[in-house]
Design a protein around this nucleic acid. Structure first.
Lengths: 214, 214
DNA sequence: CAAATATAATTAACACTGTTAATATTTAAA
DNA sequence: TTTAAATATTAACAGTGTTAATTATATTTG
């Protein structure tokens, strides 16, 4: 009886420490960016030896990948509430705005999820995981585009091509913005009257174009 | 008399070493990727002390930025030859294909130029340089889009918004491809019949949409 | 309960990284 | 030839991820 309870305690402690490591990694990540997530810094903040972390995560890529997953859960949560929007084109617009807001409010997470190569390398290396979270987000987009098609939108373009096209455009805008390229181009190549261009403004151009594809 | 010639020799040697450092950095970069470009590895291959490099480049960011500039010169060179294409929409398509080809053939350079944050940080830090190369490439796009507009294309969309839109879309496609996201999505979310999607195929969707905006 | 065995955590070490200060060497000027 | 300037080097600092060997802590068995 007591053997089981102590065993459970041990297991719980293991789980807790695993969580704690991730929690500290996330805090460092949010406060000081990607570079601050070093095994030694995590260990110091949690008052354990750096090598202990390797008993809970295979390597640094494993820790980073766990954060990567957290990001996808956050984004998915934002998408779920949009399922209530009935009109498909309105839902598509809402998804776009939601995606952009996520990128602007969580630039570090966005970088980890869609720009950095490390986490996707970790997935490819460890083929066991099928990485549902990623596929699920794109599935949401596919469904919405399909609904748009059944309402007369994008009739001359293939469903999967269209979904990929929309994602590419919005991701392109977000990544150019987050890496500072957008601001740079606006500063040096845009006329005075248009220097106040925002990401949302760029998105409006996409909406205008998509609307014309009815 | 001899003083001048030896002075010149010294200057030339300085220039040569500066070039040599960049040359070795580029070779390492192309052969083993970004991570291989370490000050120590460059120095070893060139048989000088690592610290000597700091007499020729301010820091590693400076070396990386020099490579970054080389990349923009390569891309610009590709764009120049396209100026001969008379019909503006044809020229726009050619530019797009050229851009995509550059990304696929020089993925490391593309990453350095449009994905990594380090080089643009270096520019922002050292405000003296106005970074002509970058602005020039976007200027080419602006000119072509303007020509398209005068031929009846994109009439309902602002010139600068349109140019940015096109760049965002193509950059989005390229960066998703290079970071492995595109292949991943195609593998897990595309039907069997469309699993052979290429970057050029995705580009065709953009062309189809742009054509419909006449 | 004590000894043997798993489990967990630690220390020490390796091979790297960018970068700076102090020192030595080479070249040009007085 | 001595002095001054430019150039290059060594040594060192403060980090990084990661592994092997070792110690400490529980758990199970005799």
């Amino acid at each position: 009886m007591s053997t089981i309870s102590t065993k459970d305690k041990r297991l719980k402690h293991k789980e807790d420490l695993r969580k704690k490591i991730l929690e500290v990694a996330k805090a460092l990540f949010l406060k000081h960016g990607y570079d601050a997530v070093s095994i030694r810094k995590i260990a110091e903040k949690i008052a354990i030896s750096p090598t202990t972390i390797y008993l809970y995560y295979k390597d640094k890529g494993d820790v980073i990948y766990a954060l990567h997953q957290e990001g996808f859960k956050m984004l998915s949560a934002q998408f779920v509430v949009l399922a209530s929007v009935e009109e498909p084109f309105e839902r598509l617009k809402a998804m776009g705005r939601s995606y952009i807001r996520f990128a602007l409010e969580n630039p570090d997470f966005y970088e980890l999820m869609f720009i950095m190569r490390d986490p996707i390398n970790f997935i490819d290396k460890d083929c066991s995981k099928e990485w549902e979270e990623g596929g699920q987000a794109f599935e949401s987009l596919l469904n919405t585009v399909e609904d748009c098609k059944s309402h007369g939108y994008f009739s001359q373009i293939d469903l999967h091509h269209m979904a990929l096209y929309i994602w590419s455009t919005i991701h392109g805008m977000c990544s150019l913005k987050l890496q500072g390229h957008l601001d740079h181009v606006v500063k040096t190549n845009f006329p005075e009257a248009e220097k106040d261009l925002t990401l949302e403004g760029a998105f409006d151009t996409l909406v205008l174009i998509l609307k014309s594809l009815k």
